[in-house]
Design a protein around this nucleic acid. Sequence first.
RNA 1: GGUCCCGUAGCUCAGUUGGAUAGAGCGACAGCCUUCUAAGCUGUAGGCCUUUGGUUCGAAUCCAAACGGGAUCACCA
Length: 592
Amino acid sequence: MLSFIKNEVAAAAQTLFGQTIDANAIQLNPTPPEFKGDCTIVVFPFTKFSKLGPEPTATAIGNQLKLQLPTLADFNVVKGFLNLTLSDEFWLNQFQSKFNQESVHQITPNDKRVMVEYSSPNTNKPLHLGHVRNNLLGHAIAEILGAAGNHVIKANLINDRGIHICKSMIAWQKFGNGETPASASMKGDHLVGKYYVLFDQAYKKEIAQLISEGKTEDEAKAQAPIIIEAQNMLRDWEDGNEAVLTLWKTMNEWVYAGFNETYAKMGVSFDKMYYESQTYLLGKDIIKEGLESGVFFQKPDNSVWIDLTADGLDQKLVQRSDGTSVYITQDIGTAQKKYDDFNIDQSIYVVGNEQDYHFKVLQLICKKLNKPYADGIYHMSYGMVELPTGKMKSREGTVVDADDLMKEMIESAKTITESAGKDQGFSEREKSELYNDIGLGALKFFLLKIDPKKKMLFNPEESIDFHGFTGPFVQYTHARIQSILRKANDENSHASINLSETHSLNNEEKELVMALLQLNNKIKEAADNLSPAIIANYAYQIAKSFNTFYAEHSVLKAENTQKEFRLALATYTAKVLKYTLHLIGINAPNKM
RNA sequence: GGUCCCGUAGCUCAGUUGGAUAGAGCGACAGCCUUCUAAGCUGUAGGCCUUUGGUUCGAAUCCAAACGGGAUCACCA
């Protein structure tokens, strides 16, 4: 937005010192609040050819800019920093041209096709807090990339086959007595998860038994009857055994019903579902292909490997000796399928950083196979959510369940709203929507405000806040503005806003205007970095800025053009807040 | 052991990609509701940016080493 200044500075340098410089290389920063000015040119680099000290150089450029730029109201020099103050008229014009556009952000489409794969659950257990971070990140990244102009396809790869599902199935056969989600009054994913835990308990018991009979731990783990049953079941599944397939389908349906409920609650959705059961065979085909071309090699026991030692990695198994596929086998197949289905330029995998190695291997394998999509594979590696006790482990029950957590958040929203007496004037239906918006707003903002790359800590003992740097704070600011606007209409104030008459801006107004004008830059930055946190932080900054303005100046009590301007400012602020919240999947109620 | 990530206020996190006196929130303390919604605003206290070297006009930011924490290297997914 201010990049035209860089060009002017480059021109000034040309005039003054006869030096041609790249305008993009000029450092233009916001002026820190303790100094006077709107933006700052760092002039240290200019001293090399100005043959002057930093201060005279800055002064010379400042004077030259004054001649070139009518919108430059003032400048001052501190050491090597040239602080520029632009006229209020300039800021008002900038604001007005934005305000008069139809929406706060115009999407200019590029022709890039990007797939964002996220969620990718296993069907043997319900979703937990780690999945929530994954889903919210994936959803927000897809929104942000779309806002930046990409054609985005949201995909979900369901890990619906494998030994882990067989474990739940075996346990259900053994201990289930025909239990169903309906008979147990449980969400299907929770019911299946229960049997996964039961399997693990039975397995541990058998291991302990075998060890007491004199086996080593490794022997016991391999020889426990229940694990052998599970392995047999996996083989039966791959052989197409009817009974196994029927049970598998039934239990998976239970899980999908449960997941869909959770997804709906979270507000995430997908354009395309992939199922590992439908892609792993394609993976096997590619393995065969690579075996023939010599990318892979076979060991005497028939297992298939790739040697990545030359790339600083190890040898990696891509197909078991019994011919069944492993995790990476199906990923190789799915990568191909994604490309065939959508002709994508980029394939983003939103997957935790514990799988950094896996994706390094996947990309390397695709490269060695000369796949055209190899370079487009990008692992959006996000940090784990940890508890004060360490990592969450499903099998050990140390997880924060997604459904429980969302329910608690909505309950808290209700309690807080009621105790503040702010539930007046809502119908029952509206109330429940409101509590949903606020409770989930708090949860989503809490998870998304942190840089995705960093691991984060969640302490179940401390409830997620509704005050301060939070979702409800931003939502509240939006609702507050809506309240002002409602009143303004009640008073029959002018619907059309005319800013043609110039007047001066106070500090709070100016700061807010400057912040609002950054929206496009922030979206670009967030898209480039795949970081919803940038949007969350920006939304907070806008809300904070508005609240400071609000506490200091009245909108409705202002007069004439000032009132019109402030109404426009409030209107536009509300739109930006609503839009930025939308990008990170949060609703903005009009009243709270 | 190899590889990779991280270390900023008591706690949880920002820090505009190398710029000026390092910022927020929570928690603590002190103020502000006859005035547009107090889920708000203002102020105070709180820092050897883990340590040590290096690069340069200038380092929380880049490089190297040490220390501390984590992930990963499975015929699990």
